Simulated assay, not measured.
Amino acid sequence: MEGEPVTTLKVLICGTGFAGRGHAEAFRAAGAEVVGIVGRTDAVVAQVAEEMGIPFAGTDWEAALETCRADIVSIATPGGAHYAPIRQALERGCHVFCDKPMTAEGDTAVDLCRRAEAAGVKTAYAASFRYTPSVLHAQRLVAEGAIGAPTEVECISHFNLERGIPFGWSHRREDGGGRLNNNFTHTLSIACAVVGETILTVTGQVRDDLGRAPKVAGVHNFATRRAFIPEDLDDPALEWGESNVEWSYTVLAQLQSPLAERPVSVLFKHGGLVPRFHEDHIVFYGTEGALYLEGHYGSGQLHHYRDGRWQALPLPADISDSLPDVTGETEQCWHHLARIFVQDIQGHTVDPYPTFHEGSLYQQIIDIIRTSGSGTDVTALG
């Protein structure tokens, strides 16, 4: 507890790609010891462990749990591969840090949440772009009344992803793919962090406007997948995989805010394959003003509207000074959440952070959006 000697926590990483490496660095920066890493391929996991100076490397997760006896496991694989290793870790009483999506469907996420509660362990759910500097700034400003009572939130993004990105987990619903799992999880977390965590209603539409993607060998790290796009997508020798998940979505939600008497309306609009013309953005509107955050996760410049004009606001020094010293906004947000998680496990007082409660709730909401249909048929109306 507070004032007692701090124990160095041991961490076991599941996954050797971009997220696995990022989680390992985040926990080291938080003062934990990374004692092992597990991957699918012997040669790959051995190479990553050597490069990162991690003492244990293997492909057998249960054996790694037994050998490493970690306090924390960090799950950094695609969402479809989360359920079994998390369940096994919970059975051993490990705290769990899990990247989004929590699992590939709502019922398995709920099951893990209940198991974690029964085990009495702490969990963290890394829908972590709520920790970008401008979002932290917006959270403070809204709490201070800078926009009055929140009324509306708008999250708009267009990624223009290459259609030739090699076929993989991101194209398959059962593997945790889709833009709801890998974009909406972050923007929903951001909206909740700023205006209120209670989600009242949700409805939406999704669209798979990709159809298929080329099958290419050798892709391992999600961050470098673009390097494997075939030069000739019309090559008759190419093999193709079929997408079965959404690449665009439109979601309407209502959040309950402690700062407003009425529900806050939220629009989430994302086009994974379409180009942007204006800047992607997140806007928080209120009865007395608005906050406009540049960028699809609100990580750019923050602008405040009040008394008839917009003004760019500098980042407060204390927020700037608290930012993890690491390159990349994804990595910065992992570092922020890992630091809070470690401190919480060590008994320090910390601000609330996303846990398996949010992870399981978000996964159930994604299931609802995917099955909510295409709207009310009005073709017979006069």
Rank of each mutant, 00 (worst) to 15 (best):
T132H: 01
G93T: 10
G58P: 09
W169K: 08
A118E: 14
A43Y: 08
W169F: 08
V48P: 06
D111E: 15
D71E: 05
K100D: 06
A70F: 05
T108W: 10
D111H: 13
A119C: 12
A89L: 03
R69C: 10
H82M: 02
P133N: 03
E66M: 13
W169C: 06
M52D: 10
R173N: 09
G106V: 15
T123K: 03
A43F: 12
M52Q: 15
Q47A: 12
D99L: 11
S128A: 09
V96L: 05
G148L: 13
V142G: 05
E117D: 14
A84K: 12
C94D: 01
T59P: 03
W61E: 02
A126C: 15
T123Q: 01
D107F: 13
Q88C: 07
G80D: 04
Y83Q: 06
H82I: 03
L136Y: 01
E91T: 12
E144W: 11
G58S: 07
Y125K: 03
R69D: 14
A104S: 11
G39N: 10
A76N: 10
G39R: 07
R115D: 12
A57W: 01
L112G: 07
D107M: 14
C68Q: 06
A43K: 13
C68W: 02
H137C: 13
P166Q: 05
V73I: 14
A84S: 11
E62R: 14
V44H: 12
D42I: 07
A116N: 08
